[in-house]
Structure formats: C-alpha cells, structure tokens
Design a protein around this nucleic acid. Structure first.
Lengths: 166, 166
DNA sequence: ATTTGATATGTTATACTATATCAATCGAAA
DNA sequence: TTTCGATTGATATAGTATAACATATCAAAT
C-alpha cells in the first residue's frame, strides 16, 4: 500500500477537503482563538467523511489515530468549529457535518438523506431573508437559523430505481 | 384552593389548550391509531406548558400524576404525536413542543427564545415552497422540513430594557 | 365465544449523547 | 518570570433515547 506523500497526516487527499482545511487555517491565522491540531483534525475527519458523524464516531476516529481520546476532546473541538461556522450540528440526528461552502455568511440549507446520511448544502439567501422578515414582524430577534430538509438524495433515488434494494 | 370543575384531570383550563386537545381528539376519532389517555396526557402537558420540555421533564410530570412512568412511556407518546404532527422535536435542544396552530399542512416555522425557551410558531408557506424548490432543483426528494430560529422573543427583549436582568 | 392480528402498555436493562470538574500545560504579554 | 488566558488531559457523572420482551386490549373474522 502506497502512502500519499502529501503533508496531511492520515486524512483525505481529496483536493476539496484540502481546500476547505486551508480556508479554515487562513481564517484563524490572525484570530486570537487558534485552529489547533486537535481541532483541525476533527474538521478534517468531518470533511473527509462528507456526511454526518456522531461525536462518538468522531471520537473513534481520533482514537484510531493512536493516542487516547475522550468525549470532551471531540465535543470541545466541535463546539469550537460550530462557533466559527465550520461545522453544523444536525440536531435531529445528534450528529455533525462540516460546511464545504466558503464559510457562509448566510445560513446554509442542509439536505440530509435518510438512507445514506450524506448531506448536500445549498445557499438560500432568499429563504433566510424571508424567515428573518417573518421573525422580525413577530418581534423576534434572530440569532441563528436552522434550515434542514430530510429526505432522499439523488444517488439513493437512483439506487432504488436500478438494482439495489438494501 | 379551588378545583376547576371542568372534566380535564389536572391539566390547564386554558381555553386554547382545551381547544387544541379537542382538535386532536376529533382528528383521531376515525383513525385506526388512537389518541389514548397516555398520549393525550403528554400532549396536554406540552400544551399547558407552552414552551419546550425535555422528555424527562414530561416524564416527571407523568410521575407526579400518581402512577409509575418510564422513559419509554414518554418517548412512545412523543413519537406518536410527532408522527401525526401534533408535536415538534427541537433537535438542538433535545426537547419537544406542541403545535398550537391547526394541525399544519405546511411545515411550521418555530422561533425559540434562548432566554425563556418559549416557542412562537409561524406559518410560512412561501418559505416552505422556496426550500422545496431549491431541493428539487438539486434532485433531492424532501420528506420533512425543519425551520427553526433561535434568538430572543419579544417579552425577553422588553425585560432586558426595563428592570429585570436575570 | 373464541381465535387472530394489530395496537398499545409495562418493565427492565442498556446504549448513546453530552457536560461538569479539576488538574496540568502552554504561550504570549506585562 | 510572573501572570493570565486559552487549551488539553482525565475522570466522573448527568442527561437522552432505544432495545427487547412480556403483557394487555380490543375489534374483526370465523
């Protein structure tokens, strides 16, 4: 088995993953809070996976890196990454997913497949504006929006139509 | 202390609560699945409370009704009520809230106050349609939408401006 | 009336998710 | 170098949710 010669430890060599990590690194360059190796690794795990992962699935991957890891290690990193909008928590799944779009100013709309748990993102600024408007008409001061859709992704629809039935 | 002579066991006598319960009763009248006393009681608890409650908070209230109650009692009732759209689970809080609007055809937009945990509902069919459109353009088949906003409700904004500071 | 099948509840145990707490470490600024 | 904040290590515990299996209920069909 050949080891990828790139600099990332044991993460994906997917260019998209690398690009997202790079973005995060740049973002934190001049910030007081830092993207430490532990935090970077959690982000990398999520990006490489592509879909949602539970905190304990992330923890398993951290453990398999070699050294001991505890729940708080995963949760602390996740809290941090969520705070800075590099990760989104899917409440209904108690699971986490990395943003792949450029560090969204707008709330991202997540489409979560009930079959494969993969997640598609879409920016939908109009929707955000509309909800914002509805809320402010009700006198409600919005701090955070959660837009999620659960259903079946394109791939899984195809699977159902062709051969697979699992 | 005077006991309200109405027929409801120990629930709220708030007309709105009673109306919502009545609606649910009517809805299940001719269905194969039934709004049993246990399920009705959980709905009543949520309606009477007005805001979000965790499953174990509901469980505590069930216990204080007199007889033994176990986690599954609360979760089973909640699952049922969620399935028929009388209750919404707020994933990010691991908590539950009753719909007060008429058994919405459209997904309801929930505004959850971070100070008091009370929940305001708004119908926003345009938003739902818009998300539906975004999703189908992406080839995603939507089964359920979750629209939530976290922030500060009108009351708590007022509180902050006047005297309270807790 | 009884069998059957779907629905619902009772009960125990356990799995999964998340946070609190306190000690130790590290790094930059005073 | 001291001090302060930020980060990590480690243990314990709190909180959330489901599995599994037994029991009960009730209505429809025989």
């Amino acid at each position: 088995m050949q080891i990828n010669p790139s600099s990332n430890r044991c993460g994906s060599s997917d260019p998209k993953v690398i690009a997202c990590l790079k973005q995060a690194e740049v973002f934190f360059q001049d910030k007081p809070k830092k993207l430490t190796p532990a935090r970077r690794r959690v982000l990398e795990i999520l990006l490489a996976h592509g879909g949602v992962l539970s905190a304990y699935q992330i923890l398993d991957r951290l453990k398999s890196d070699g050294k001991a890891a505890h729940p708080a290690d995963a949760y602390r990193a996740l809290d941090f990454l969520i705070e800075y909008k590099f990760v989104h928590k899917v409440g209904h799944l108690s699971a986490f997913v990395a943003y792949t779009r450029p560090h969204a100013t707008h709330t991202t709309f997540f489409m979560i497949c009930r079959k494969c748990d993969n997640v598609a993102e879409a920016a939908s600024p109009d929707t955000n504006d509309m909800l914002e408007k509805v809320a402010s008409e009700a006198g409600f001061l919005v701090k955070q929006q959660v837009l999620e859709a659960f259903g079946i992704c394109t791939d899984c629809q195809d699977d159902a139509g062709t051969s697979a039935n699992t």
